[in-house]
């Protein structure tokens, strides 16, 4: 956990208003794991006030990548940065995906911009595990496949791939599975994660999900991002510090 000014090396514009920043930081590149995040202060002004959390999208040598779309004041301002500009970065933060477990097939599930942490996860698993990716969006314009492998797509309007949501697609594909030990890694809207949690637990597949919540500090002091623990009714876990990645059995969505 550290605060530093990191320089933007390169900006790549993907389709449909998705920005990819390549940022130089040997320290973060060395330390950060897939699923962990960085909390970025976009401006020194009071608006926007909070830092904005971004999961690390990929790591390459001394650089890391951030993927985002322009949603509000913060991301619009971030999108106006140029190569050579510096950003104020706090991190790495949180707990990422557990990839040292005993599994042979990684099933990656991303909804919309929820795919952001998976290029890095894919890079780490490539050559070691079988990878299948299920990517969903409302329309084809929401489907981001950057840095992913072995992709099946679902869109709610049927404009690309399977017509329906990505969990329905997964359910359909799961029926065909064999005895290969699988583990699910997922990130996306809460409604998607809720449906996935039920499906994974019914089928007894180990499942890790990256959750999202409005955050201020990103490291546990503001207590602003609670998520219900399934083990203890009287306990909230914090998305920023205990997560953002949880085993689906640890939490109630």
């Amino acid at each position: 956990m550290n605060i530093a000014e990191n320089q933007i090396d390169e900006i790549i514009e993907l389709e449909y208003n998705i920005h990819l920043f390549k940022v130089i930081s040997p320290e973060i590149a060395r330390k950060i794991n897939p699923g962990e995040f960085l909390n970025i202060r976009i401006s020194e002004l009071a608006i926007p006030l909070f830092r904005r959390p971004f999961s690390v999208c990929d790591v390459e040598d001394d650089c890391y990548y951030l993927m985002f779309s322009t949603m509000g004041t913060g991301t619009k301002l971030l999108a106006s940065k140029k190569p050579g500009d510096f950003i104020d970065v706090l991190g790495p933060l949180g707990n990422g995906f557990n990839i040292v477990d005993d599994f042979d097939r990684a099933i990656i599930i991303g909804g919309g911009l929820g795919v952001a942490p998976f290029p890095y996860l894919t890079r780490q698993l490539k050559g070691k595990k079988e990878i299948i990716s299920f990517i969903g969006g409302r329309t084809k314009n929401d489907v981001i496949t950057y840095g992913l492998e072995n992709i099946s797509v679902a869109t709610e309007d049927g404009s690309l791939g399977f017509k329906g949501n990505v969990i329905e697609l997964l359910e359909k594909e799961l029926d065909k599975t064999d005895n290969i030990k699988s583990k699910i890694f997922a990130c996306g809207p809460t409604s998607m994660l809720k449906a996935l949690k039920i499906l994974a637990e019914q089928n007894n597949i180990d499942c890790e999900i990256s959750t999202e919540c409005t955050m201020a500090c990103g490291f546990g002091i503001c207590q602003g991002c609670p998520i219900q623990s399934s083990a203890d009714e009287d306990k909230y876990l914090l998305v920023c510090k205990d997560g953002p990645v949880f085993n689906s059995k640890e939490i109630i969505l």
Binding site: F50, Q223, G224, P226, K235
Partner: peptide, 30 residues
Amino acid sequence: KSISLKPRKGNKPQRIMETAAGMLNAIGLA
């Protein structure tokens, strides 16, 4: 952080949000 006699779980989410140059919080003394 405020201490109470017994532990307090605090409020359900959403607990915080950003406003113009400020933040609203309703942590509920967790």
